[in-house]
Design a protein around this nucleic acid. Structure first.
Length: 847
RNA sequence: GCCCGGGUGGCGGAAUGGUCUACGCAGCGGCCUUAAAAGCCGCGGCCCGUGAGGGCGUUGUGGGUUCGACUCCCACCCCGGGCACCA
């Protein structure tokens, strides 16, 4: 199969070898005050619950099975694919337990389920590992993919293996390049020179989203700035749509993710205002959210590192300006972002004209104004903006109040007033409040032709070039005669050169630039000598469309078939970590909208529902090598059995909460599974008499509750109901009742969490086939009606009595009985009021 | 500073206007066993009572709405996460 070409040379995964030995052993462990003692291996007898003895059997029997159900309604259950660095870890254990439980439950509810698996296999760790060990990134990557795939199967994932993909497969990145070219044709991919984020450690540029508090998201190094010509995607053109379409996601995505994206996009309403500058033909435009305070603009500030500052600087100030700029440029992003820094700046020796007052105001350069936001220049209104006030006080510039908020004079208090107030000394605005003032000010500058209302965004275009080897080459050729030329579709993929032709050592330039033969090509347009782009794409480009490729695996005429995509998309739910809130999830939303505009897909949002699982931590902290508190997933699976670990992941907490592995009990989960397994064998041996109606009703109620809990992804509570059901059925069986129907439902219901134990117990019940292929049980609604319910009698809000009453009891009769029961608690007081909520509650209010 | 989420037993967590603490972990008592492990049964806010039972208290703090509040409203405290010189 074409998809697997790379794997020919991959070494065999190591994960499977010790398991045969373990299969004959069972581990016995004890827990003492949270510290697990050494495991002790003992040979097991025939009646011991020994998951290792049946895991391999079921794994073999499940071979090739998927959750497809031809003709049924389709559902796309999607898990964030993994980066293949080493084996699966505890975090994968949680996200996969959630995903698999949900996918299996969806199947059991009658849906045709697409549940694919793949690998986000381009990226820096492969390259860094290769440099360190002198190996090939492909070899490292594909060996890890095999290791992870083996563990993934062992974990009991019901994935559709025929759709497995890896973004580093040429069959995949061919289409990544193809999609890049479609965006290029549409003007959504473009190249420009600008100041970019540079990671000195990884020796590559970074997108804004990959800079976290001035540091590289991946390695933590302090990011610096460089001026480079790079490729960008025009995500800014989609800012408003990315905001608007969040309405479609409200209630289906976690509020925190939506809030983070809203924050990141940073919509800001205000106005552009033009200021004439002495000695310059064209005015300079500023952005402000408070055009109503224009009259209070007493100076003007340009970002010191913007070309505009250099241009505006008067000859007499040049020396001082350049010294200041040099000083600013030595600051790292981390230093510059310190919030409590003193204001610094330098006068540029020129003046601007306030378009409202006609006043001449001085122009300064400072680093508190950002070159990349707005227009890189501001009107400073010190009375009503704290930063401007701090600057004015540092350099003794005038402060003029134009909004009277009733607070002390900012010039004296040092506190800018930003709230509601009445405009003063502002001509036509005088007497207006804040919002009216803003509207009137916009109307006024528009009338005068010196400004206009506008909306700007904090979001920046997505920088996609990377100066690294292990990624998809950017399919563009530079020709001295024709300029930027797209590689024709029929010449895709632009394959990576073999590592033997490349120097991988980071040196601030792409390793591909050292592959001279690879880089020299004929221009596709004129046939003359030309050279390839030597950068590769950000791996977030790869992951922005993999969920579409899953719909049409192996297709070699297009990245995907629109009909397949229409049949499956959007994914619901999409399950993965919250660290991608403003990275992958924002990029994938943008990409889907761009592909919609290109007519390639019909959906505007790729993920109709999002589940963010929590992290698995240990002893209150994230697991890490430096802390030495890591827990190995494979070792836990060996120690407790796969199902016990899966159940622990799901039972410990709601999916979105973190799990502290020191606080939970895989041994306890195993104990429960053993009880189910033992119950199945005991029930199969037969029973003395029919099941009691009360038992039947209790079973029905628990099944019904568990079903509703599953529907809401409440796995931890659904499992609690299954445990109650186990306890109930055990008692019924021991009392001689026929617990078989209930036990069959129980065994079926644990299949999403514990597929191995479910199928094994199903077989022990004497049934053919698989519990994991059964339909989810449904209950007779007649059984959900109890014959007696408990009615609580409250006096002054406190529970004073309980009555067993038929659910059909009338309000009047219940009132009488409740009053009689409340007599002692009333102690002779008169009754002022009685609230009856038949049949469960009566509240008595004494006088 | 702005935005989002949260605070319930020794612990993980149930309960979203009506019996607070389901289910599980850890703990304690008992049964079984020569013994241990495993397994099974039971206990689990405080006080009085051998017991049945009775009294009191309780969901970060303070107030409010309500017959009734973990749940709704106001103010505050604390914890976690995101953004941040964004004009």
């Amino acid at each position: 199969m074409a998809l697997r070409r790379h794997r020919r040379d991959a070494p065999t995964a190591e994960a499977g070898t010790p398991r045969r030995l373990e299969a004959t052993l069972v581990t016995v462990q004890r827990a003492v005050r949270g510290t697990r003692l050494d495991t002790l291996a003992v040979v097991t007898g025939p009646d011991e619950y020994a998951p290792h003895q049946f895991e391999d059997k079921w794994l073999a029997r499940w071979e090739g099975a998927t959750l497809r159900r031809e003709g049924a309604e389709k559902r796309y259950v999607l898990t964030m694919f993994s980066y293949p660095s080493g084996d699966l870890h505890m975090g994968h254990g949680e996200v996969y337990a959630i995903s698999d439980a949900w996918a299996r439950f969806t199947y059991m509810r009658g849906y045709d389920v697409l549940f694919p698996v793949g690998f986000d296999s381009f990226g820096l760790p492969a390259e860094n590992a290769a440099i360190k060990r002198g190996a090939d990134p492909a070899q490292w990557t594909y060996a890890n993919i095999e290791t992870q795939s083996e563990s993934y199967r062992r974990y009991g994932m019901a994935a559709d293996w025929s759709r497995r993909l890896a973004t580093s497969d040429p069959e995949y990145y061919r289409w990544t390049q193809w999609l890049f070219l479609r965006l290029f044709e549409k003007g959504l991919a473009y190249r420009r020179e600008s100041q970019v984020n540079w990671c000195p450690n990884d020796q590559t540029v970074l997108a804004n989203e990959q800079v976290v508090q001035g540091r590289c998201e991946r390695c933590g190094a302090q990011v610096t700035k460089r001026s480079l010509t790079q490729w960008y995607f025009k995500i800014t053109e989609y800012a408003q749509r990315l905001l608007d379409d969040m309405d479609l996601l409200a209630g289906q995505w976690p509020e925190s993710v939506l809030a983070q994206q809203r924050n990141w996009i940073g919509r800001s309403e205000g106005a552009y205002v033009d200021f004439a500058i002495e000695g310059r033909a064209d005015p300079v435009t500023v952005f402000t959210t408070r055009p109503d305070t224009l009259g209070g603009a007493t100076f003007f500030v340009v970002a010191a590192d913007a070309p505009l500052a250099d241009e505006l600087c008067a000859p007499g100030q040049r020396e001082q300006f350049e010294a200041y700029r040099a000083q600013v440029q030595t600051l790292s992003e981390v230093e510059r972002q310190e919030t409590q820094r003193e204001k610094t700046g330098v006068s540029l020796g020129v003046h601007a004209t306030n378009p409202l007052t006609g006043e001449q105001i001085p122009v300064w350069a400072a680093d508190y104004v950002l070159a990349e936001y707005g227009t890189g220049a501001i009107m400073a209104v010190p009375a009503h903006d704290q930063r401007d006030l701090d600057f004015a006080r540092a350099f003794d510039l005038p402060v003029r109040v134009v909004v009277d908020t009733g607070e002390p004079d900012p010039a004296e208090s040092g506190v800018a007033t930003t709230g509601e107030g009445v405009h003063v000394s502002s001509g036509v605005l005088d007497g207006l409040g804040k919002d009216d003032g803003i509207a009137a000010a916009i109307a006024e500058v528009e009338r005068a032709g010196t400004g206009r209302g506008t909306v700007i965004y904090r979001l920046r275009d997505w920088l996609l070039s990377r100066q690294r080897y292990w990624g998809a080459p950017i399919p563009v050729v530079y020709c001295p005669r024709c300029g930027e030329v797209a590689v024709p579709d029929d010449q895709l993929p632009v394959l990576l050169p073999p590592t033997s032709e490349v120097d991988l050592t980071p040196k601030g330039e792409s390793p591909l630039a050292t592959a001279h033969d690879w880089g020299a090509v004929d221009c596709p347009d004129c046939g003359g000598p030309a050279r390839r782009d030597t950068d590769t794409m950000d791996t977030f480009v790869d992951s922005s469309w993999y969920f579409l490729r899953y719909c049409s695996p192996g297709l070699d005429t297009a990245p995907f078939d629109p009909e397949d995509v229409a049949a499956w998309m959007p994914a619901r739910p999409y399950i993965g970590g919250k660290e991608h809130a403003i990275l992958h999830l924002l990029y994938a939303r943008f990409f889907t909208k761009a592909l919609y505009d290109l007519g390639l897909v019909e959906v505007v949002e790729p993920f109709a529902q999002l589940i963010n699982q929590g992290e698995v931590i240990n002893e209150g902290r994230g697991m890490s090598k430096s802390l030495g508190n890591g827990v190995d997933l494979g070792a836990e699976l060996t120690r407790y059995g796969v199902d016990a670990v899966r159940v622990t992941m799901l039972f410990a907490s709601p999916p979105e909460d973190d799990i502290d592995w020191a606080d939970v009990s895989p041994a306890g989960a195993g104990k429960w599974l053993k009880r189910v397994w033992q119950l199945a064998a005991d029930v199969a041996a037969g029973a003395g008499r029919d099941v009691e109606p009360a038992t039947e009703r209790a079973v029905a109620r628990l099944v019904d509750e568990a079903t509703h809990l599953m529907e809401g992804h409440r796995f931890n509570v659904a499992i609690a109901r299954c445990m109650e059901l186990t306890n109930l059925l055990r008692k019924a069986h021991d009392a001689g009742e026929d617990a078989r129907p209930g036990t069959e439902m129980l065994v079926t219901m644990i299949a999403p969490f514990a597929p191995y134990t479910a199928d094994e117990a199903w077989e022990r019940l004497g049934n053919k086939g698989f519990a994991t292929r059964q339909d989810w049980p449904s209950v007779d609604s007649d059984l959900l009606v109890e014959d007696l319910v408990t009615c609580v009698v409250q006096v002054s809000g406190k529970v004073r009595a309980r009555l067993e009453v038929p659910p059909s009891i009338g309000a009047d009769e219940l009132r009488e009985r409740a009053l009689a029961a409340a007599e002692a608690a009333l102690g002779g007081r008169d009754v002022a009021k009685v609230i009856v909520r038949a049949p469960t509650l009566v509240s008595v209010v004494p006088a």
